[in-house]
């Protein structure tokens, strides 16, 4: 588990607003991004245009798999 040691001493939330050092920023920024282990679902190769998917499926002779959600499945859902 990633962690940032001693961070709060320099960073009182909502009040005080101490600056982040470069290393603190880099570490916390990285922590908030998706880890590689969380990103396997993107390796499938999703289209985001249904019509383009239709055209590809027709050309390649494959069926279409559609992941349809309220909120984009590759975005905020």
């Amino acid at each position: 588990m990633k962690k940032i040691l001693g961070f709060l001493a320099l960073f009182p939330l909502a009040t005080g607003h101490a600056q982040l050092s470069k290393s603190q920023f880099d570490t916390l920024f990285e922590l908030c991004l998706p880890a590689e282990s969380e990103s396997g679902w993107l390796e499938i190769g999703w289209e985001i245009d249904l019509w383009k998917a239709r055209q590809r499926a027709a050309k390649e002779g494959k069926p279409i798999f559609l992941w349809e959600m309220d909120g984009h499945p590759l975005g905020c859902t």
């Binding site: 499938i44 999703w46 383009k52 069926p63 279409i64 798999f65 590759l74």
Partner: peptide
């Protein structure tokens, strides 16, 4: 299975 046999697409139902 999806990569080998399907064209995959994701969309917002809204």
């Amino acid at each position: 299975l999806l990569r080998d046999h399907f064209v995959t697409v994701a969309a917002d139902d809204w």
